[in-house]
Each structure stands twice: as structure tokens, then as C-alpha cells.
Design a protein around this nucleic acid. Structure first.
Lengths: 222, 222, 222, 222
DNA sequence: AATGAATGAGAATTCATTCAT
DNA sequence: GATGAATGAATTCTCATTCAT
């Protein structure tokens, strides 16, 4: 589940986990993702998580200190994965606009598959503000770096403030994803796996304008 | 507190409220705004609300059916007021971009004065999804209408989808407000009353680009 | 139950209790005394206390902050009462030895009727050390004062250190009470209501010797 | 750790312990003494004991049946050792009063070095009453025998009831030790290793009086 | 209209004990 | 002999809601 090889220690004993322990920890974390996604942080309970994971209640506390602790672990884990998903989708892009398209595709794909991230982060302001900020800041940092690079290559409007733009773009993506992905459902109540292409393209036009990308400016010039 | 003249009825007796009752209801709603802003929805409790309002616990249930009910009443009330704040700030604008600037100023001013709206809406997905959607949709509807009008006047890029753009702009504003208003504090921990001008201008440039406003295009043409 | 007129406030609201509230508080405290006496502090549970008091679980927390808080309230209450019981039994004594006899009679009578004090204090070292010390120190203080007075009247050995003697006498009483009152039971398992006179007298002889009272020295002289 | 050569059997296999097993058992028992002394019986946990002993949790149950079982083993072990400490300190005494002085010195020295005995016994009434009684009774029995012998040698007041006197003296020692040894600490929080001489002497005077020892009566006669 | 005592379901967390490895 | 992951009953405490006064 986690990308980075990391050695977890038992919060109870402080000792590194055995292979068996590692597997149990992963099952609990995966169950927590499901439960948090369905019920949100507050409605979720440790009992529900452990039931879904198929372990006993007490087992939870072998691996996590508290409900808040697993929330934090989950956010950090999901955050690493959504960024990886975005990075992968951006590979091969030759212009910033292609990178944006790829990045948002990766972001929305991940969101459709892992609604937990979304839902749980949005209600986390009072649960674990530091973790919530960490989540946003890690995304913004990478994003702003990408914009800065594009600026130095003359690919986007040099007047933009990369950090402000990054926050703006992330906010955009968050609400567009919420509205056109998570809230959307067909006549049978099924959730879509991706944003409707028309909407996605409309969003990309908005972004292209905002970044004043070369592609865009060429388009306008013609 | 509420702008629109509305006749409330007691959930207990079903009869319209007297003047005294109306005043008590208002005090409770105002207290709830404070408490929800400080603690968020889940940490807030009815006892804390009634204590802050200076009424007895039981009095709460004379005016509201439940914790969720006051949350809904509060969101609807705040939503009406934030929209009014935005509308007022937009008055006199002659271009869409001026309207945007005014609208965001109004939005951020209201946010600084009433953080409850922000905080409580963001954790409400599982509390009262319908109310949360209502909040966003009411803003988006007005916003999209404004964009549509600007398009028909040739003031902004005619290719934009007004609804998608409205969601994008609202998301932008939400995260920019969170990051540069609510999270910001000076060395003594005091929260700013407005977004730093440089950031605000950077955001406006982003928006100007995005909307492809006439002003903007003229600027680029030169 | 409590001797001193005291105004209790609800730990929840901080307001003084109504008459009804005062009665409930008393019932809970009395139930706690019974449960603590039967089971000790650690085996006792809030549920058991409220069941015995005939109130709902949540009601407990209207009157006491925690299990430890009711323990402390109980110790302070019992302490005031055992001292009163001792004082009353000492009234009318004309010599220190008569006062001692009266004091121990009062102490043992109270112990037989309220074993909670005894049992709960002895296991309190790790629960609430401050309260435990308070209990012992309040008794010792009064005791030492009595001894000092008797010394200045030439009634007991002037060489004794009153404070050390007071601790010694209290320890004596504690173990004698434990052994010959609380541990004792007849063939049907019933606990005695008082210490067997022979034992009591033997203890009094020991004390008379220890204090080197005039009575005693006259006795020895003859 | 244990003085008496005793053959322990594993509660798991029922077979006598090997040398290695015996060492492990001893380490666990010593760890338990430390943990119980620091935290008391109820706050102590098997995990903490095994951690302090440097063995795995499961190992505990190879040597002891339960938490209560190790408590009982510990009390019995400490009881044997405190009595030995007292006996050693009494060796060479030529009068009962010298024996008393020695006995209390031994008792307090042991208490200062092994506070576990004290602390754990005092909260054990509801954990293992039989063991608690055994502890007190074993001490009293020896004590009473010593007093009886002194009486038959005309060394102390013949009218005293040896058993009652033994309980009285033990209670005295318990509270004096608690107050002037365990509760005492210097300005840096360090615990004393012995009772302050003035206090000890004051206590001995009290005892001398109580026992009506020959020394004492000679002193008074002069 | 207002009060505030009472309720009890539900939550997080602990820890002695078991047992497969 | 030793290990440590797993168990789940039991406990303390919270708080939205009711209702008699």
C-alpha cells in the first residue's frame, strides 16, 4: 500500500514489526481507508475499522496509538500516493499544459478510486490541522516548483506567482472533483470513474487561459 | 442577523415566535456561529452553545430540533450573508474583472469576520450533505449567471463554460482564503483581517488570465 | 451525610446545585461508600456506583468529574466524620487516658459502621496520594494537639514527641482495627460491631504505658 | 533473591526449572518488585514487568500463572526477607528494648531499600487478602513470641497481651515508616535512606514506655 | 418561555491472558 | 525455553436529547 519502503514500529513495544505484523498493519490501514471514505472521520469508529479488517478490536492498538494517529498515517500514505499518481500521469508531457492535463487526470483518477483522501482531509481541520496542512503543502510545493520551471522555460505567463497559482489550481481541482466526480452519479446511483470529458476540457481551457501558456497564446493569436 | 424577513415557528409548539422568542433564537444562532467557528461542528456541543448564548440547555430545543438543524440554519444564514457581502462589493463594477475583484474582496472580508462558514462547511460532508451542496450551489448559480452575462457582453472569453468556471473560481477562492487568511497569523498569533495585497493581486492576475477578460487581452495585445 | 453545610457546584455547569441535585449527589456519594467498601477502589466501577444509587450512568458525571474525584470527595467527607465521631466520644474525658479511650472507641465504632474509609485509604497511595496524606495529617494534627495539651497539664510523659506519638498511635489503631474488627467474624461470617473488650483493654494498657500517663504511673507506684 | 532454597516448577509444564529457567524467574520477580514499587499493583502491567526484565511478554506465563500469582510470590519473598533483615538486626541484643531498636532498624532499612513491600501490601486488601494477612501474621507471630519470652524473663511489663502489643507495634512501625521515610524527601526530591535519628529516638521512647521495659522502669525510678 | 436534572447509547482505550511459531 | 501477535471483555467518560417543573 505504501510506496516507500518504511520500517514501522509497534507503538506498544517500539520494536520493528515482523512480516506478519506488517501485513496486519496494512490490512488495518486499508480498512480504515474504506471506512473513513464511507463514513467520514467522525462517524468512523475503531470497531468498524477492525471489523472491516477482520481483526480484533485490541489489535488496532498494537499498530496505531489512536484514531487520530491512524488518520494521520492514512493521510500521509494517501498523500504520497496521490502525488505519485499525478507524477506518473505527467510523465512524457512536453509542455506545461500537457503536464497539467496529465496531473489532473492522475488526481481525478486517484480521487475516484480513493475518495477517502478527499473526504477525510476536508473534515480534518479540527482533527489534525498539522496533518491537513502537510497534505496541502506537499502538493503545493511540487506544483509550484513545476510552474516555476515552466516560467523559466518561457512556457507560461512569467508574471504569475507560482505559489499563489498552485493554491488556486489545487482549490480548483478540489471543487471540480467534488462536484463533477464525487457528487455525480448515474440513474442507478453508481459513481463515475472519471469526470465527464466535456467538463474536463472546459476546466483545461480555464487553466490554459490562467497560465497564459504558449499553446494558448498561439491559439489566441491565430 | 438574518437578512431576509422570515417567520420562524417554534419546533415545539409550531406557533410563530414572539418578539422575545425571536431574540432568543437569534442569540442562540449567534452563539452557535462562534462555537462552531472555534471548535468545528463535532467538537461543539449544545451545552457550549447555550452557555455562550446565556440560556439554559433546554431552551435550545425550543428553537431548534437538533444539532444538525441549527447547523443547517446556520449555513443557510451565513450563505445568504456571504452572498450579500459579495453582491455589495460587486456593485458599481463596470467590467467582469472589476466584479471579480469586488466579489472576492467581499468573500474574503466575510471569511475573516465569520470563519464559521468556512470551517463548518468543510467538515459537513457527512453531517448534512444536502446543506453543504446547497451552500456551494447557491454561490455557483449566481456566479455562473454573472459569467454568462459577461460572455454575452463580450467581456470575457466566450469559450468558457460558465458553470465549470464558477466551480473553479469558488475552489480557488476557498483554498486561497484558507491558506492566506485563516492559516496566516503574525508573530503574536493574531489573524489578519485581509489577505496580503500582493497575494490578492497575484490571484487577480490568475483570474484575469483565466477569464480571458477584455482588459486582460488588451493588456496582452499592447 | 456531610456535617458541614457546604455548597456544592455541578462540575459540568459550575452552578450551585438545586435541592434535587443536592439529594442526588448525596445518594451517589453514599452508594460510592458502599461500593468502595465492598470492592475497594479498583474493583469498584462507576456503573456499579450508579446502579447502587439508582441513577443512570451519565448522572454520575453531573456531580463528579471522575472516579478519582468521587474518591477524594468521599475520603474528605469520611475524614470529617470520623474525626467528629472521635471528638464526640472524647467529650467529658477528664484525663488524657480517658480521652484516648473515648477517641479509640469513636474511631472503632466509625470503622465498624463505615469500613469504606479504612479500605479505600489503604489502597490510595497510587490513586490520590495527596488525599491520602490529607486524611492522615488531619487526624494527626488534632491528635498531636491533644497530646501537647496533656503534656502542658502534666498529664502525660513530657519527654514524648507529640507528633511522632500521634503517628504511632494512629498506626496502632489502624492495624488493631484491621485485625480485630475488620478481619474478625463469627462462625456465621457476621462482622463484629466492636472490638472484643479484652483486646480493647489490652490495647489501652499499651497506650497507658506508652503515654506514661499519671494514672498509669500512680498505678505503677502503688 | 529468595533465601530459602526452594524448587520451583514451571506452571506450564509442571517440571522443575533448569538453572537457566531459575535465573529468568528471578529476573522477572526482581523486575516486578521494581515496577510494583514504582507504580503500585494496579498501575503495574505485565508488559512493563517483562520489559524491565528484558524478556518477552509470553515468557512471564512460563513462570507465573497470573498477575496475582506473581504478587503473591513477591509478597512471600519480601516477607521472608524483611523478617530476616529484622532478625539479623536484633542479633546480639541483650534486652528486649535493644531487640526492638534492632528490629525497627532492620525494618526501616529494608523498607528504604525495598519500598515495594510497603506499597504493594497496603493496596492488596482486595487483590489477595489471604496473602496480605499472611504477611502481617508472619511478622506478628515472631514478634509476639519475642515479647512473650521477654515477659517470662521479667524484661517487660507482664500485664501486656503479647499479640495485641505485636499488632500495635507493627502498626506503629508501618505509619512511622510511611510518614518519616517514604513521604520524606529533601529539597531535591531524594528519598532518605533512614529515618531521622530524632524521630527514631522519639519512637523508641514511646516503645520503651509502652513495653514498660526494665530499662525504662529503672530510668523512671531514678 | 425557560429551566436544568436525568438519561443511556456509544466511543476510545487498556491489558491480562492465550497460543501458534 | 522463548517469543510476540492477537484477543475481547471491561472501563471511563461524553453528549444529544427528553421532560417534569
Amino acid at each position: 500500500m505504501t510506496q516507500i519502503d518504511e520500517v514501522f514500529v509497534s507503538p506498544a513495544t517500539g520494536r520493528p514489526l515482523t512480516k506478519r505484523g506488517e501485513a496486519t498493519r496494512r490490512r488495518i490501514l486499508e480498512a480504515a481507508e474504506d471506512v473513513f471514505a464511507d463514513l467520514g472521520y467522525h462517524e468512523a469508529s475503531i470497531v468498524k475499522v477492525t471489523e472491516r479488517a477482520g481483526v480484533a478490536l485490541g489489535t488496532f492498538y498494537l499498530y496505531f496509538d489512536s484514531k487520530q494517529a491512524i488518520f494521520e498515517a492514512l493521510v500521509i500514505d494517501l498523500n504520497a500516493r496521490v502525488r505519485q499518481s499525478m507524477t506518473e500521469s505527467m510523465a512524457g508531457a512536453t509542455t506545461r499544459l500537457e503536464a497539467e492535463r496529465g496531473g489532473f487526470e492522475g488526481f481525478f483518477r486517484f480521487t475516484a478510486e480513493h475518495p477517502a483522501l478527499y473526504r477525510v482531509v476536508r473534515e480534518a481541520e479540527f482533527v489534525s490541522p498539522a496533518t491537513m496542512r502537510l497534505h496541502y503543502e506537499r502538493i503545493v510545493d511540487g506544483y509550484a516548483a513545476g510552474l516555476r520551471a515552466a516560467q523559466s522555460e518561457g512556457d507560461i505567463d512569467p508574471r504569475l506567482d507560482p505559489e499563489v497559482a498552485a493554491w488556486a489550481l489545487m482549490g480548483m481541482g478540489e471543487l471540480i472533483g467534488m462536484r463533477f466526480l464525487l457528487w455525480e452519479q448515474d440513474s442507478e446511483g453508481a459513481k463515475p470513474t472519471r469526470i465527464e470529458p466535456g467538463v474536463f476540457d472546459a476546466m483545461m481551457l480555464f487553466i490554459a487561459n490562467a497560465l497564459g501558456s504558449n499553446e494558448q497564446r498561439k491559439g489566441e493569436a491565430s
